[in-house]
Design a protein around this nucleic acid. Structure first.
Lengths: 153, 153
DNA sequence: TTGCAACATGAAGTGCACTTGAGGTCAAGG
DNA sequence: CCTTGACCTCAAGTGCACTTCATGTTGCAA
C-alpha cells in the first residue's frame, strides 16, 4: 500500500486544483518524482504538507514564509508528528496576535462609533504600527508623518 | 477658512500617497474639483472619507465593497457624524465575525497540536465553510468533494 | 519674470497566488 | 488497437490595489 498518487488524486483528496499543485511544486513547496512517462507521482506524505500550506495561508502567512517554515523540516526522512507539531505551534502565537489586533481595532471602532468622531488620532485606529499586519497587508505609506489633523469638523 | 486642499496636502495629512489618491478618485471613491489650471482641489471632507476607506480596508473590505458602502452616503450634503456612524456600525459585526473565526481556527489548531494529527477532518480546520472569509480570501476549490483521507500514516 | 517643486495624464509595471490556454503526450478500458 | 480523459510544458492572463514612468503643465516665491 505504498502506492503513489497522481496529481489528480492529490487534487481531489486535498481539494486543491491541479494547477495550484503544479504551482506549489514550481515554488518548491512540495515535490514529486516522475513516472516512466513523465507524469508526477506524489508520496501520500504530500497531503499533510498541503494541509499545512493551506492552514498556514489562513493564518496569514505568505507562500514565501511557508516555504521557509517547511524548509526547517528534516530532509531525508518523512516528518513526524512532532515535526508538524513544532511548526504548528508557531501559528498559535500568530493567531493570538491577530485576534488581539482585531480586538483592539474593534474596541477602538466601538468608541469611535460612540462619539461618531472617526477621529483616528484619538482612537488610535489610524496608528498602524500595531495593527497593520492584522489582515496581512502592509500599507507602509500609512506610516506617513502626521495623520493628525483629520479632527476638523 | 474653507480653503481647499491640494493633492499633496491631502497626501501628507492622510498619510496616503498621491498616486493612491488619484487611483481612488479614478475608482470613484473620492472626488475633487479642479483649479483654473486643472489641478485637483479637495474639500477637507475628503480626509474623513479617506480615513473611512483605510479603516474599512483593515476590516477586510475590498475597494468595491467600500465604494458600495460610500454610495449610501447622502449626495449633495456633507455627511454628518450620524452618517459615518451608520457606516461604521456595519464593521462591528464584520470584525466580531472575523475574530470569532480566527478563534475557532486557533482552538482547532490547539487540539491539532495536542494530538499532533493535523487531521483536518477531525478538527474541522479543513472545512472552510465557516472560516474561509477569516482572512479575506476565497479558495473555492477547497470546497472540493472529500478532504477525508489525509488521516493516512 | 523666472525657476522649480508640485501638479497633470495615460500607459505600463509590481507582487501575490494562482488560473487559463495552446499544443502535445500518456495510460487504461472497450 | 484505438479512443479518450488525464496528464505534460510553457506562456500568458487574472484580480486586487496600487506604484512607476515618461512627458508635459501649473503655481508660488524670490
Amino acid at each position: 500500500m505504498t502506492e503513489r498518487l497522481s496529481i489528480g488524486e492529490v487534487a481531489s483528496r486535498s481539494g486543491v486544483a491541479t494547477s495550484a499543485l503544479r504551482f506549489y511544486e514550481h515554488e518548491q513547496l512540495i515535490s514529486s518524482t516522475r513516472s516512466s512517462g513523465g507524469q508526477r507521482r506524489f508520496d501520500r506524505d504530500v497531503l499533510r504538507r498541503i494541509a499545512f500550506i493551506r492552514v498556514a495561508q489562513r493564518v496569514g502567512l505568505t507562500l514565501d514564509e511557508i516555504r521557509t517554515a517547511l524548509s526547517t523540516l528534516p530532509n531525508g526522512r518523512t516528518p513526524t508528528t512532532a515535526d508538524w507539531g513544532r511548526l504548528s505551534r508557531a501559528w498559535r502565537g500568530r493567531l493570538d496576535e491577530q485576534i488581539e489586533l482585531l480586538g483592539h481595532l474593534r474596541d477602538d471602532l466601538t468608541s469611535c462609533i460612540g462619539c461618531g468622531c472617526l477621529s483616528f488620532k484619538a482612537c488610535r485606529l489610524y496608528n498602524p504600527d500595531d495593527a497593520a499586519a492584522a489582515l496581512g497587508d502592509g500599507p507602509r505609506y500609512l506610516l506617513g508623518d502626521r495623520p493628525d489633523d483629520i479632527r476638523d469638523r
